[in-house]
Amino acid sequence: MKSDIIKGLQKKKNQILEDWITIQVADAGLREDLMSNDELREQSSELLDALLKAINDKNIINIESPDFEQVHEILAGLSISRARQGFSPRETGIFVYSLKEALLKNLDIDQTEDVKTTVETIFKINRLLDNLSVVTFETYIKGREEVILRQTDEITEISTPVIRVWEGILALPIIGTLDSARTQVVMENLLQEIVESGSTIAILDISGVPAVDSLVAQHLIKTVAATRLMGAECIISGIRPEIAQTVVHLGIDLSNIVTKATLANALKYAFALLKLDVRKIQNKVSQ
């Protein structure tokens, strides 16, 4: 009689689909801006097909059964794409929760059966659908994490602008922590810009770097060394007192690097290297 229930569900597939879509469309959280009703119907129908095909009275109690692999795959694909499209967890969750409602509604309950069996059946369907919800959330979060990772990449890209402050002088303000991935981007951008602009001096301003430990110092030293290999000089500016303290306490040797307290000082030093003189215009009209 258990298989009767599943057969019943399989037979009523179209009705379930209609009910399911009705529930989804009725929900206030439906994102018609992100997904059309046709699309929703297509996705719902695909998942329901797979689920009803996979389910039988044996595996209904074994949620880990490989029979459900295809269902999980479809669901994971949907959840990830929803995460990327910007659906909220609630909007993503409704998709599966409402399926449960539609399934239970269409359950053929034999009136002659005792209550115990009916409750058991409902439990089984519940458990199966709850597991599908877990899959949904797991993949949804994974999708969000991917979005975050991509954004991190983008931030790294954006947050390293190379500025031409003077003919032959570049400045690169570094804001935020300098890890090895970031250093790579900084180095690449800086060296590329040195070649393109033909600049002989680069100023790395680290006043926006919260802390300098030996690893960060290592990255800075590498950047300076690479700049010199190209035939340009690299000055590090924006050394705050705390940074000077930690550098010395950690025993980091920066003696081969030109360091200046402020960007202004570094610029002055760069002017001197380029034999430029910046002066105030003398006011000829005496008072």
């Binding site: 949620i63 880990e64 490989p66 692999e69 999980h72 795959e73 994971a76 597991n131 877990v134 899959v135 797991e138 993949t139 994974k142």
Partner: peptide
């Protein structure tokens, strides 16, 4: 579930 736990 089985998909999620698979090692890369």
């Amino acid at each position: 579930m089985m998909k999620m736990n698979q090692k890369l």
